[in-house]
Design a protein around this nucleic acid. Structure first.
Lengths: 341, 341
DNA sequence: CTGAAAGCGCTAACAA
DNA sequence: TTGTTAGCGCTTTCAG
């Protein structure tokens, strides 16, 4: 069988009607209310459909119903476990609402986001899911103008312009810090991802800065990748004991840090404690198993799907949703060694 | 500002025309051929558009042009770096063709795939990207009937019913085996992902089975996750020296294996060599850095995007595309220790 | 340069 | 149970 295909004009409802010797209304009925059509007529129509290889036109249906049945998601990148997992549960939950998911990536650039948002609306997205609360003015104008449902995820702020479905980033970071503090750590190196255009990262940083004046925190910004985490701590001489713990505001960075420490022969947690934030699937299996703050990204995808689906369905703005995080203590943190600091 | 929005009827072209005191045709013209409209008229129309907050209807445009400008991608899961990366480059390359990407996940189940494929076509996808060559009959009927462009990725087979864009899975696995063999390994444990419904995994297995009769291969199936890799090799006592190397047909599994070996105190590569297949971004940073076979997933996404875009644009079936893989030798493999086997 | 009018493929009253 | 017909919002001739 050849891979090409002859290009006839696609059959439409009228063709089917003619072939089956009925009116277009009857054909439409076998589609939308098969019960109201006589058995024999229906058979005839269905045969006509198959023999003409008729395929319904989504656009025509959409123009009548006013619905396209898909929503758009704007995420910084697909290549990060956290967004992949959100999108995964978003997709499956939207499918339950008979909605599809169009994805677009923004590279954390508000301008790109605004542009892609326009594209999504242009092709008919009924609603949008975005990440965080940092957006371009163009973007706000766009949704203001289109009056299109948009929910923001990965964050929580009832005062925000859009409904938010997410967790308390500041609180999560604080929980990590508190854990380290309770273990007696005072001098702590905080490694975080890029904070430009990323309010989640900024919220995490803000959550720990000034939270505990007794803690002596140093901050280092790292690319949001395993390699980035490695490089960021590459030059550090841990034997100086300048810090007894490393608080990573993201698990991918923590993973890189762990790898690099191991490579340097620094033992975790006896020499340095390491804690992450996110709880990726792999984090539980690292050596040592990574202590981290679990963020409920799957539940978040689910909740966001329900929120947007309800909104496009009922026209009613959803409630903000705050999901819990959980400190997961594993093997990468331990009490600070006593020393005369 | 409230999060809700009053729900007026959305303005349409006619409303704009009336407001601007022109005909709908003129309004349409300022949209599609601004040059042919008098400066002053155009101004007036544009003002009407903004003041009425007019937003074009995607469905109406689609019904006329016959185009929806989006294509659907069916992947087993989003939560695997490899698919995330393919989709990432697919999305950005399709964007260059002014096409959007709708994603749907199949859980490696052909029935789900067929169902979701129907859903994608129903909402108007102009083309489909699928993974591999294992599909349900329903699926084939569907695309046969809809005469819709479909390209298969992650594999390569010119004899296949659909155009394929991908790499030689058998060859990649063979390259990994050859590397191990050249290092003197003979007794090798092969750990692979689930092979049911997954022709890529089966191809990799087939690629090494019987390839080198001198090698003594044992096969173990593992879930496709880091945790799966860990568990699969958990019970093994490597000191028995039953195998001197472990060939993982997927990097996520190799990652789990590496973690588990480290936990057991088995040293890699001096006691056991480990090699993966895929080359994930994190693989280069593992301890030890993972030797693996690099699969060009980003280039593949790009090529697949071009293939499908060209197809929906020109109606011409694209060529199959074979992309090269590369053995990346890093630190997790070493010559087999001499022993009297 | 502009307008009138005929559709695109389908749904949904309303009649019969 | 079935048919007729008027749109849905927009593009596109074809005439002015």
């Amino acid at each position: 069988m050849a891979k090409g295909k002859a290009e006839r004009r696609r059959a439409n409802l009228r063709d089917v009607a003619t072939a089956a010797n009925v009116s277009v209304a009857t054909v439409s009925r076998v589609l939308n209310a098969p019960g109201t059509v006589a058995e024999t007529t229906r058979k005839r129509v269905e045969e006509a459909m198959t023999s003409l290889r008729w395929v319904p036109s989504a656009a025509a249906r959409a123009i009548n119903s006013g619905r396209t049945r898909f929503i758009g998601a704007l995420v910084p990148t697909l290549v990060h476990d956290i967004y992949a997992r959100v999108l995964g549960s978003l997709e499956s939950q939207l499918a339950l609402h008979r909605l599809s998911l169009v994805v677009a990536t923004t590279q954390d650039d508000p301008e790109i986001e605004a542009r892609k948002a326009r594209g999504l609306i242009d092709i008919g997205a009924e609603g949008l899911i975005v990440s965080g609360m940092t957006h371009a003015q163009d973007f706000y104008d766009l949704i203001e103008r289109g009056a299109i449902p948009v929910v923001a995820t990965s964050c929580h702020d009832p005062r925000y312009f859009l409904p938010t479905v997410g967790y308390d980033n500041a609180g999560a970071a604080r929980a990590a810090l508190d854990h380290l503090r309770s273990l007696g750590h005072r001098r702590i190196l905080v490694v975080h991802g890029p904070s430009a255009n990323n309010d989640r990262t900024r919220a995490r940083i803000a959550g720990i800065i000034d939270h505990d004046p007794q803690a002596e925190l140093s901050f280092l910004e790292s690319p949001l990748s395993i390699g980035g985490g490695c490089e960021t701590v590459r030059g550090i001489d841990w034997s100086e004991r300048k810090w007894t713990a490393c608080l990573c505001l993201s698990d991918v960075i923590a993973t890189g840090v762990l790898f690099e420490l191991q490579r340097q022969g620094v033992s975790v947690p006896s020499q340095v404690s390491v804690i992450g934030t996110d709880d990726l699937p792999g984090s539980a299996h690292l050596c040592p198993e990574l202590t981290t703050v679990h963020l409920p990204v799957s539940r978040m995808g689910l909740a966001a799907a329900d929120a947007i689906a309800g909104w496009v369905e009922t026209q009613e703005t959803p409630q903000d949703r705050l999901l819990d995080f959980d400190l997961i203590v594993r093997a990468s943190t331990a009490p600070a060694a006593q020393d005369g600091s």
